[in-house]
């Protein structure tokens, strides 16, 4: 196993990526889909507004991209810190 300071740095890098990802996760579901929907009501799409699209389609697509981004990025970080299996 890697030494203590290296494993702390690895964990900090992981936390940083999780935080960024979860901010996007929150914005695209709770944000655009629910809380900020009134602000997006001016942007029309297919007979309704962008907030509706995010709530029923967009959020799910963003979730998918986020997980694969996280898996890819962590794969690189694992290798960088020499903790991959």
């Amino acid at each position: 196993m890697a030494d203590k300071s290296s494993s702390n740095a690895y964990w900090a890098a992981n936390i940083r990526i999780i935080s960024i990802s979860l901010v996007i996760w929150f914005m695209c579901s709770f944000g655009f889909g629910i809380l900020l929907r009134p602000m997006l009501s001016g942007i029309a799409i297919g007979g309704t507004d962008l907030g509706f699209w995010f709530a029923q389609q967009g959020s799910i697509l963003v979730f998918l991209v986020l997980i694969f981004f996280y898996a890819w990025k962590m794969g690189k970080i694992d290798a960088e810190y020499g903790v991959e299996e």
Binding site: I18, S21, L22, W25, S29, F30, G33, I34, F52, A55, Q56, S59, I60, F63, L66, I67, Y70, A71
Partner: peptide, 25 residues
Amino acid sequence: ISFGGYDSSAYLMGWTGGYVLLAML
């Protein structure tokens, strides 16, 4: 969804968004 319309979006986001938490947390 058919009879709840927009309000039922909670099921769509809720039952998929949990996988992001699973993958990262």
